[in-house]
Amino acid sequence: MTREEFDAAARRLPGATMDVQWGDDCIYKVGGKMFAGTDGGYTNCSFKVTDIAFEALTEQGRARPAPYMARAKWVMFDDLAALDPAEVEGWLATSHALVAAKLTRKARAEIGLA
């Protein structure tokens, strides 16, 4: 997956924004809460996954627990370019949905997720 594909897929999600934080990391948010991130060069990517996906992806060695965020069930893929774009789009949509579900009803309504 290319940086352009990742950025477009993340920004297509309802209410998604991107901020540059912690140096040059690109952090994608919904309602002010992180749902995905990459390093500035878009060489790796991280996002929240379900408990089952976290176990499967880390046990199979496809991903590793994301630094600082593993306790919240985030995974990191070290080579974004090697990932299938359709698969990443699905993970981004799932991560977005998991994070958006925790927003207040008012916040969800403000970004069109009522």
Results as ranks from 00 to 15, higher is better:
66 A>L: 11
47 F>L: 14
65 P>T: 09
48 K>P: 10
77 F>A: 02
50 T>L: 11
57 L>V: 12
49 V>E: 10
60 Q>N: 15
63 A>L: 01
75 V>P: 08
54 F>A: 06
78 D>P: 02
48 K>M: 06
73 K>Y: 08
59 E>Q: 14
62 R>A: 14
79 D>V: 10
72 A>K: 12
47 F>R: 02
73 K>Q: 11
77 F>T: 00
52 I>F: 05
64 R>P: 01
51 D>P: 07
56 A>P: 01
51 D>S: 13
67 P>L: 07
64 R>Q: 13
55 E>I: 04
77 F>E: 05
58 T>A: 05
79 D>G: 02
67 P>A: 10
62 R>I: 12
48 K>A: 06
72 A>S: 14
58 T>C: 04
52 I>P: 00
69 M>H: 11
65 P>R: 07
47 F>S: 00
51 D>R: 13
79 D>M: 01
48 K>C: 00
65 P>W: 05
50 T>H: 03
60 Q>T: 15
49 V>K: 08
47 F>Q: 00
67 P>R: 05
66 A>R: 08
61 G>C: 09
57 L>K: 07
76 M>T: 14
63 A>I: 06
56 A>E: 13
53 A>I: 00
47 F>N: 01
48 K>T: 01
69 M>R: 04
56 A>I: 13
52 I>T: 14
61 G>R: 08
75 V>H: 01
77 F>R: 04
67 P>E: 05
76 M>E: 12
48 K>I: 01
